[in-house]
Design a protein around this nucleic acid. Structure first.
Lengths: 187, 187
DNA sequence: ACCTGAACACCGTTCAAGT
DNA sequence: ACCTGAACACCGTTCAAGT
């Protein structure tokens, strides 16, 4: 059926968007492509690698940050665009977090953040540590948003007001950004 | 076999500590108690509720924070004691995060943090938002630590230096604490 | 080179039936 | 009231065999 890695990742992302991570099984992906689940293993070694491919596909839409920008504004823009990309795909925060945790995936979601910090004079190690802290906040917050969104779709929870999520994200992000920007470059 | 909720949660926690979350299946828990998996459903409605019980059991060991302490010191102490409790049980950060996300569990891991902020004059809403940001950092960081620890045990990864995790945690926590403490109570 | 069929060793959950 | 046996509808993964 002329199936390849790209088509498989695309089908997986389609199922993720429409039905969520719980429904993204090898059998369901095979069905979507008119192929057996076992066929996928000819093109991709295992499910974790497939998940990493989906994570990369999602993160491809994160825009490259503007270079000539004060640090605080750069961090804010990076975090907001990451969040908005994640909110564009169901359970995306969980997929990205899982891939990040096991160290797979070509794209590391905080490299734009690391770059902004390096340009502001931070050394490599400190920049990675600070960026990771910011990333943990973004992934944690969006995971919370998307999990609750799933519970609402499932009917076990009343629909919350999205504005509250936006406000909570703004407050948390402000804390993280001020915490970072208030640091001397090599404290 | 005189099985009850408390014994089941205890057996589940024991399997978590010894073999990890992936091995904590209803059948394995039943085996550990000399009972069928189906028996568990007489005492506990489903696996999510069982996970919530395990999460509560873990969080029971988080000490109540000292009341007469400056805000920054209080936040620091809270975050460090939460991390150290989580590191005491394999995959604990994942268990707590999953329970928190679906809104189950009696104990909310950031209530001590909320209390410290309220004593410092923060209003309820802002205190919850700031505490949640701090919690996302702690859970994200410890999840990363424990996932990598599992990969090392599995032999797919070389043993990292634990000191690096400690340092990364300190840097990230410092950012979050400074970000919070540098805020006016009702900005 | 690529795909199928069929299996292996599991899951969470339900439910009639036993004691 | 509490537990068992057996099933249902799934999983990820492997592998001989087909084309």
């Amino acid at each position: 059926m002329a199936v390849n890695r790209e088509l498989i990742v695309g089908a997986a992302l389609g199922i993720l968007d429409e039905f969520g991570l719980a429904d993204m099984s090898m059998r369901r992906i095979g069905d979507a492509l008119g192929v057996q689940a076992a066929t996928i293993y000819w093109h991709i070694p295992n499910k974790q690698a497939l998940l990493a491919g989906v994570s990369d596909a999602i993160l491809a839409d994160v825009p490259v940050p503007v270079t000539d920008q004060p640090l605080a504004a750069g961090l804010d823009a990076w975090a907001r665009s990451l969040r908005s990309v994640l909110l564009g795909h169901r359970d995306a925060a969980e997929v990205v977090a899982a891939t990040l945790a096991v160290g797979l995936g070509e794209r590391v979601p905080d490299e734009g953040c690391v770059a902004a910090l390096r340009r502001a004079g931070w050394d490599e190690v400190r920049a990675r540590q600070a960026a990771r802290a910011a990333l943990h906040f973004v992934l944690g917050h969006v995971t919370q948003e998307q999990t609750r969104r799933n519970l609402v779709d499932f009917g076990v929870l009343k629909s919350p007001i999205d504005v509250l999520d936006d406000e909570g994200f703004t407050v948390g992000l402000d804390i993280v950004v001020r915490g970072i920007a208030g640091w001397s470059p090599q404290a």
